[in-house]
Design a protein around this nucleic acid. Structure first.
Lengths: 221, 221
DNA sequence: TATCATTTTTACCGTTTGGTCAAATCTCTT
DNA sequence: AAGAGATTTGACCAAACGGTAAAAATGATA
């Protein structure tokens, strides 16, 4: 949860951070994550964030120059969390093990970082104004790289013919759904607000879907 | 795209709608859909919506009492669009045909109504403050009903054992992803903003995923 | 064309919002 | 303990916001 955006420009001296500075920046980012992920960028107010950080608004603005700077700092930290599971896909493994563990990692990420996932979802829904560059460059590159691995498995006959990038989309959407749409999931399942017990069943569903066979063969007519 | 919220309370006389009234309400709702789906509720302003409807703000407020009333009107209209594909799932058909056509309907809905889909996504992400009741009652009921159909197919051995409701979640997430996360999809695929040519490939992917078998058998070790 | 209801506009209001500023307080070092 | 730098606070501001009121303009109807 370290902040890479407030860290300096190469020309500035970049003083070492005080104990208080570290603590308060962390508190602010945590509070802002809570508020931004719940209310969206425009729905979040500096007063609210400051309140959640148990801090006055001017004091908050002493550490971050603007509301947008906090938002960008959060997004930047987020991208590593988002990419990490994808990076681990290896050409050495088999489709079943690699796809299976990728799904587990992504699902675990949804369970562990639901607020970060919602922050990301909000940003994409808003047209990705702050991370368009990231999507076009780093993410696209990594996707192309991993898609090539999947493609080699398709060429081997280990994986059904399909556009590997769309396979990744399917994994992203199904796993992130449990964080981004958790309210809907809980209402439909009849669970109380805090309950996240659906993750076990979700994992089973996704394993069947991606690694097994959903519809029994011979009944397609 | 008719509006059911401004229509009357049972006690009020409910005058018939003027030609101008009908036209302007439609223009406002269309403009508001554009703005709300793009900016979210808090990011949208009455000035912007009025501008998009080519109308002054007070004039807009002559037709809708408040910003929230417009939002609720849009959401209410939306729910029918959202539910329609699910309603069509029939116990008469086979799993392959029913699930397949449900996916096609949902995907078509994403392509045809991307703004409505994003409006819905925004609402859920915000905690579903306006449609929590709908999710808990109408949607839950319909899901339970359709899940029972899927369950009967599981009992028949026509469908792999799984929680049918999570199967529905998987269908929702994968299909809606192409509307809600279209910006990300396009950036990753290297497409220009307006391009929706990915839907064909998406349909193929989802058919393979839900109706076929992704990972070749015998290689799971 | 006169009349009345509907529609549109102009001017305005109170509140909220992101952000500033300078003074006051605190913390750390010497 | 004193001084310097870091931190915190309270008072404040301009702009944007959702919304109102009343007059002006338009449309329908007879």
């Amino acid at each position: 949860m370290s902040n890479s955006m407030t860290r300096v420009a190469s020309t500035a001296p970049a003083r070492a951070k005080t104990r208080i500075q570290q603590e308060n920046e962390a508190r602010i980012l945590q509070a802002a994550l809570e508020v931004f992920s719940e209310k969206g960028f425009h729905g979040a107010t500096l007063d609210r964030i400051a309140g959640a950080a148990d801090m006055s608004k001017p004091n908050l603005l002493y550490y971050f120059k603007s509301k947008e700077e906090i938002h960008i700092a959060l997004l930047t930290d987020l991208l590593d969390i988002w990419l990490a599971p994808l990076r681990e896909i290896s050409p050495q493994g088999s489709p079943a093990t690699e796809i299976g563990s990728y799904i587990r990692r992504k699902l675990e990420s949804s369970r562990e970082f639901p607020r970060e996932s919602r922050l990301f979802a909000n940003e994409i829904l808003a047209g990705a104004p702050h991370i368009a560059g990231f999507l076009q460059t780093e993410l696209k590159q990594l996707v192309d790289e991993k898609a090539a691995i999947l493609q080699s498995w398709i060429d081997d006959g280990q994986l059904a013919p399909c556009d590997p990038r769309h396979l990744l989309f399917a994994i992203w959407s199904t796993t992130q759904h449990y964080a981004d749409f958790s309210v809907q999931v809980r209402h439909v399942l009849g669970l109380v607000p805090g309950d996240v017990s659906y993750y076990d069943e979700a994992a089973r569903m996704l394993e069947t879907l991606f690694l097994g066979r959903l519809v029994a063969p011979g009944t397609e007519g």
